[in-house]
């Protein structure tokens, strides 16, 4: 047996890697199917069956997506909305989750209960009341209005994740920070980096959600179409009598690249890192 295979982990890797490659290919297959569908004609897409590669490579779908869905105009808005809503979401949910996980204070149970309870009730008419609110703030047809609505809606589960993270942190950590003379805000700033995995989770999901959101950017910019984002633009493929699926696929292909990049960067945070910080 050679030295390579003598290592236990190398052997593991050969088995696991092979297995993962097979599962991974099956898993990713439908996804690849969409990417390749952006190069097909619509009749080929519907009759292709399992076949991935198009018979002839058709770039017209991308041209159509770019112009018809106004990607050239909307890309900037999409980036702005997603980046700012993510930043706001991160700040507010980490602060709230930190306090809820770390401290006991009057009203804590009530807040946690409220957050939990509201998760259950599907809101039938969410856009209507939100619309009234943003209108009464005078933020209709403005970018801040869109960003506010985007970062206002979804924080509950992120708060729960931060709470769940900070709560079991050992008291010794906070005690040592206190002994070092750190005040409230300084302690928070010391603790926050520990929550990297949660931060990464929030950034990935909030970025993805706001990147693809179409209802809010549409409804809050009705008077100014130039403020819309790409997801709204993609609706141009849904006609009165038919759907332009290949154009939609091309639009999807273009618009998911930034999301995958964000994922690729932030997934680096999922590296076990707590052990060094906690000296038991």
């Amino acid at each position: 047996m050679n030295t390579f295979l003598r290592s236990r982990y190398n052997r593991y890797n050969l088995i696991a890697g092979g297995l993962l490659l097979i599962i991974g290919f099956v898993w990713i297959y439908p996804f690849l199917w969409v990417l390749f569908a952006s190069f097909k004609t619509s009749s080929e897409m519907f009759s292709a069956g399992a076949k991935l590669l198009p018979e002839t490579w058709d770039f017209g779908n991308f041209y159509r997506a770019w112009t018809k869905a106004n990607f050239n105009i909307y890309f900037f808005n999409t980036l702005l909305y997603a980046a700012s809503a993510t930043a706001i979401e991160l700040v507010k949910s980490s602060m709230c989750g930190y306090v809820l996980g770390r401290y006991r204070f009057p009203g804590r149970t009530l807040i946690l209960g409220l957050i939990t309870a509201t998760l259950f009730i599907p809101i039938a008419a969410i856009i209507l009341p939100q619309f009234q609110l943003v209108r009464s703030l005078g933020l209709l047809n403005t970018r801040p209005g869109v960003i506010l609505a985007l970062s206002g809606g979804a924080g509950a589960l992120y708060v729960l994740l931060f709470t769940g993270f900070f709560q079991p942190l050992p008291d010794e950590l906070f005690e040592s920070a206190r002994l070092d003379g750190a005040n409230f805000v300084q302690t928070f700033r010391l603790m926050l980096p520990l929550a990297k995995p949660i931060i990464a989770t929030v950034v990935i999901f909030q970025f993805m959600r706001t990147w693809n959101e179409f209802n809010i950017p549409l409804v809050f910019t009705l008077g100014r179409p130039e403020l819309r984002n790409m997801a709204v633009g993609m609706y141009a493929f849904r006609g009165e009598y038919s759907v332009d699926w290949t154009g939609f696929a091309a639009g999807t292909t273009m618009s998911i690249i930034p999301v995958l990049i964000v994922f690729f960067i932030f997934q680096g945070y999922f590296v076990r890192g707590l052990s060094g910080a906690v000296k038991q």
Binding site: L114, T118, I121, I123, A125, I126, L128, L133, G153
Partner: peptide, 13 residues
């Protein structure tokens, strides 16, 4: 933000 964008729509519902 939670009161405005989640609780209020819920009450409205």
């Amino acid at each position: 933000l939670y009161l405005g964008f989640t609780v209020w729509p819920l009450i409205a519902t």
